[in-house]
Design a protein around this nucleic acid. Structure first.
Length: 434
RNA sequence: UCCUCAGUAGCUCAAUGGCAGAGCAUCCGGCUGUUAACCGGAGGGUUGUAGGUUCGAGUCCUACCUGAGGAGCCA
């Protein structure tokens, strides 16, 4: 059996005979010459089938090919200036693995479709050029994030998906049966990260998180992936340094390795090329003043709305870091600023071009007494947090971390309208299928 | 949960309250360089569901269902 070649490698085989395997992306016929566009996940190539150059059987088989039928093409690679990729295949042999029935053709045509139809056919939609490009960029972002932390002395330390209690209250948790008991799907690995950070120093977790929020916007999924670093002895300023380095690394990596995909998505690369260290840093106080100057109704003490985030991010052409939010609007574990206890040592990173918050984090409370008090103030079940309090009993240190939502990062880097295209099978308020 | 909008052929959409239409997809025919190929022809409909107004409803009214966009909340 002939060794088969991936389309992305055909350039190495100019003039040679190769066998390509994939799916029929499109087909055009002109009577005695047929053009079959083959897709194999690594690229596209046009196969040219000339009637008097192949057997009558091959020509007849090619004539019946339907969209997305799985096939194998054998022929000679030929450089051709007319081909978008620079190469074509002069087909000699054709093998059909499975032919899509003419009675039930592939539902996604080259023409336009509505979003409901596409989402219902997500399992087939991901075959499209655009979706492939997005998923390739997603992969690159994930790979870059992991390379960044791995090369920076971090240890990947996975945190549980099944958890006994809420991190930040129970209203947004998915509840599942756990034998005779009940459990919740994690909405953050952070509390466990704090434990592993005291064991290993610099750690990160990378996994799915779940939020049962009834949010119906272009920025929300109920199941999304998050990377969360946590560093012992680190301050909120250290986190800002880390976050801007990580984001810059990820964007640069995408520009180097996925520029073809980003161009296919018609992403304005000049916006991504501006992403470099350092990012602008403004305090919450400064952000509120900025917003009021631009007509926002916001008052000191409230959290930003989506519109507020857009206004802030549009003032800068890089991601902007907003730090020291009011303690009252942040999670119970946030360390108050010793100089101003009414604000917390936390930071959000807002992506440019109105893409909103992609990173949130900060310094965690190190004091046993203060943490115990906050758990009480937030009406959290003390018993469930005993182990978490232990971390302040046995060698407590200042420590900080943050979380980055992968899908939001992908949305921004790809320049998309909606997070639903950034994950192979999105889970949203009204979408659990396919 | 609230607000706004939408639902017509497999898909994307037209149709002043008066005969249910087009493009794509599919099928048949034509074409030796097509790039969402093109040209000719054919088949394809319980207009989301249930009521109501009207001589007559895809169109107007009510309720419901489904979806989309936004708000709140968040990454």
């Amino acid at each position: 059996m002939m060794k088969h070649t991936y389309i992305e490698d055909v350039g190495k085989h100019d003039g040679e005979e190769v066998t390509l395997r994939g799916w029929v992306h499109n087909k055009r016929s002109s009577g005695k010459i047929q053009f079959v566009i083959l897709r194999d996940g690594t690229g596209y190539i046009q196969g040219v089938i000339v009637k008097n150059a192949v057997s009558p059987q091959v020509f007849a088989d090619a004539d019946t090919l339907t969209h997305e039928s799985s096939i194998e093409l054998t022929g000679k690679v030929r450089a051709d200036s007319r081909a978008p990729s620079g190469f074509e295949l002069d087909v000699r042999g054709l093998k059909i693995y499975q032919e899509v029935s003419k009675d039930e053709p592939f539902p996604i045509t080259p023409k336009e479709h509505g979003i409901e139809f596409l989402m219902d056919h997500r399992h087939l939609w991901i075959r499209s050029t655009r979706q492939r490009a997005i998923l390739k960029v997603r992969h690159e972002i994930i790979k870059a994030v992991r390379d960044f932390f791995d090369d920076d002395g971090f240890t990947l330390c996975d945190t549980p998906v099944l958890t006994p209690a809420a991190c930040e209250g129970t209203t947004t948790l998915f509840e599942v049966k756990y034998f005779e008991d009940k459990a919740f799907l994690t909405q953050s690995g952070q509390l466990y990260n704090e434990a592993t950070a005291e064991a290993l120093g610099k750690v990160y977790c990378f996994g799915p998180t779940f939020r049962a929020e009834k949010s119906k916007t272009r920025r929300h999924l109920t199941e999304f992936w998050m990377v969360e670093p946590e560093v012992a002895y680190a301050t909120v300023d250290d986190m800002m340094d880390l976050a801007e380095r990580m984001i810059t690394f990820v964007v640069q990596r995408c520009l180097v390795r996925r520029s073809e995909e980003l161009k296919a998505l018609e992403r304005d690369l000049s916006m991504l090329e501006k992403v470099s260290v350092p990012f602008p840093r403004i305090s919450y106080d400064e952000a509120v003043a900025l917003l009021q100057k631009h007509g926002s109704e916001i008052q000191w003490g409230s959290d930003f709305g989506g519109g507020d985030e857009t206004i802030i991010s549009q003032q800068f052409d890089k991601p902007v870091m907003v730090h020291r939010y009011p303690t009252a609007v942040k999670a119970f574990y946030m360390e108050p600023d010793p100089a101003r206890p009414e604000v917390a040592l936390c930071v959000d990173v807002l992506a440019p071009e109105g893409y909103g918050e992609i990173v949130g984090g900060g310094q965690r409370i190190a004091s046993y007494d203060l943490l115990a008090q906050r758990i009480k103030e937030h009406d959290l079940p003390r018993e469930a947090f005993e182990w978490y309090l232990d971390l302040r009993k046995f060698g407590s240190v200042p420590h900080s971390g943050f979380g980055m939502g992968i899908e939001r990062a992908v949305t921004w880097i790809c320049g998309l309208e909606h997070v639903r295209e950034t994950i192979p099978f999105p889970r949203m308020l009204y979408r659990l299928n396919p």
